[in-house]
Simulated scan of single mutants.
Amino acid sequence: MDFALLEKGIWLGCAGIGFAVLFNVPRRTLGVIYIIAALGGLLKFYLISLEVGLVFAALCGSSLIGFSSVLAAHYRKAPPMTFALPALIPMIPGFFAYKAMVGVMKLTAEQDPDVYTKLFFETVKNGLSACFIILALAAGVAIPLLITRKETVKRIKTDIVLEKQLENLEEEN
């Protein structure tokens, strides 16, 4: 494994710990959050180095974070989101969002139509990249958490609420 890739994993783990401390999570979860953040980020950057695609790499890395969070929640007796959110935040594409916002600001001042067109497409590309990566991150974490839920929709007692609404409708008629 490349040392630069390993270094990114170390820093992603540190960033995950930083966000965990910011969110005031229990101390017993910090080590696991470090490992989950490092592994999720390592998978993302490893897939990027294989030229798989940035959005798919983000989806795979966030899915690993989601499944790992479910496992960690079972063993550390804490909700899965306690592990997933701090580990996921360092993977947010701030670079693309920043470049998109700078591009929008430059577009307001540009006069040359050729430069404007090039700048417009670059800004749209950066903005769409940021949006699709964020969607992939959200889906990658949400799908494992939804698949492994302990309670199904049937147990949430929505049938009782619906029965009461039907009774109220019948009483009105």
Rank of each mutant, 00 (worst) to 15 (best):
F3S: 13
L5V: 08
L6S: 11
L6G: 09
L6M: 13
I10L: 15
L12N: 12
G13E: 06
I17R: 12
I17E: 04
I17H: 09
G18N: 06
V21Y: 14
V25K: 15
T29K: 13
V32C: 08
A38H: 01
A38W: 03
L39F: 07
L47P: 09
S49W: 02
V52G: 00
A57V: 02
A58P: 06
L59W: 05
L59N: 07
C60D: 08
C60G: 06
C60N: 03
S62D: 05
S62M: 06
S62L: 06
S62Y: 08
L64M: 08
L64P: 05
G66H: 08
F67Q: 02
V70W: 01
L71Y: 11
L71D: 00
L71K: 04
A72F: 01
A72I: 12
A73Y: 06
Y75L: 13
K77A: 10
M81C: 01
L85K: 05
A87Y: 07
L88I: 11
L88V: 11
I89F: 10
M91D: 00
I92D: 02
P93H: 00
G94N: 07
G94R: 04
G94H: 01
F95G: 03
F96N: 12
Y98V: 04
A100V: 09
G103E: 01
K106T: 00
P113C: 03
P113T: 06
P113H: 03
V115H: 13
K118I: 14
L119S: 13
T123K: 00
G127N: 04
G127M: 04
S129Y: 09
A130R: 11
C131H: 01
I133A: 03
I133V: 12
I134N: 09
L137P: 05
L137G: 05
A138W: 01
V141E: 08
P144R: 02
L145H: 09
T148K: 15
T148A: 06
T148C: 11
K150N: 13
V153A: 13
K154Y: 07
R155M: 11
R155W: 09
T158C: 03
D159K: 11
L162V: 11
E163H: 07
Q165N: 05
E171G: 02
E171R: 15
